[in-house]
């Protein structure tokens, strides 16, 4: 379970993380709590964004282990509910989490929460490993360091993601199950899209704005 301690050579890395902390701390108002390895942290979207930034900017393995503790058991559950056996699921989990690490530079916190980013990587792994298909992805809207997103946009999107999560959690059980089935299984999406009344209006406009800013930044290059 997450929260159990990982005995894998963490002590030496703790020192690295503490040293690295001052630059990254408070990036979006997260306290130094994030450097405590293997301990429970509140599941706030901002916590995960800061861990992602530590992975991206410092190649911080301590941050990775903390991310793994939270997301690996969820990704494994997602893959198993999508029809994978436990052994295959663990193999995929390793690759999903390693992809999170190696592609950290592509994570855009003004467009997605870390949970969303992990979900998209896990979904692609599912298509690749379980369905044995290629997954055509939209043309990348890449950004350079000059186009780092505005902190207010990041905070806004992360809060919006949390609110969406809360909205889904508070749906009647039947509707929530429909949504889960849509993402885990092969339930028809027509009824779901119509019936669940997902509150996507605000997050959609927020992402739309982030995309517009990105297009604008690209045009100026």
């Amino acid at each position: 379970m997450f929260g159990h301690s990982y005995p894998v050579a963490l002590d030496e890395r703790e020192a690295v993380a503490v040293e690295a902390r001052p630059q990254m701390r408070d990036v979006i108002g997260v306290s130094e709590r994030t450097t405590k390895v293997g301990s429970e942290t509140p599941d706030s979207a901002a916590t995960w964004v800061n861990l992602m930034l530590r992975i991206r900017d410092q190649k911080d393995e301590t941050a990775f282990v903390e991310m793994f503790g939270h997301f690996a058991p969820r990704v494994k559950a997602f893959l198993m509910r999508s029809g994978s056996d436990a052994a295959t699921a663990e193999e995929c989990v390793q690759e999903v989490m390693a992809t999170v690490w190696h592609k950290a530079h592509l994570f855009d916190p003004s467009r997605a929460s870390v949970a969303t980013w992990v979900f998209t990587i896990a979904r692609n792994k599912k298509i690749d490993a379980l369905r044995k298909q290629r997954r055509p992805e939209p043309e990348e809207l890449t950004w350079g360091p000059a186009a780092e997103p505005d902190q207010a946009d990041v905070i806004g999107l992360q809060q919006e993601s949390e609110q969406l999560g809360e909205a889904i959690a508070s749906l009647p059980a039947k509707q929530r199950e429909l949504i889960e089935k849509a993402y885990f299984g092969d339930l028809s999406h027509s009824e779901i899209a119509e019936q669940t009344g997902l509150p996507l209006g605000t997050i959609k406009s927020r992402i739309r704005l982030a995309l517009e800013r990105l297009r604008h930044a690209m045009d100026q290059k």
């Binding site: 969820r74 997602f78 436990a86 949970a115 969303t116 998209t120 885990f184």
Partner: peptide, 21 residues
């Protein structure tokens, strides 16, 4: 995708082995 993120965040966890980490 954000809905997928919320679903994965809320799903029941399945224990992962130390070998996996």
């Amino acid at each position: 995708d954000a809905v997928g993120g919320a679903v994965i965040e809320q799903t029941e966890k399945v224990e992962v082995s130390d070998a996996c980490l």
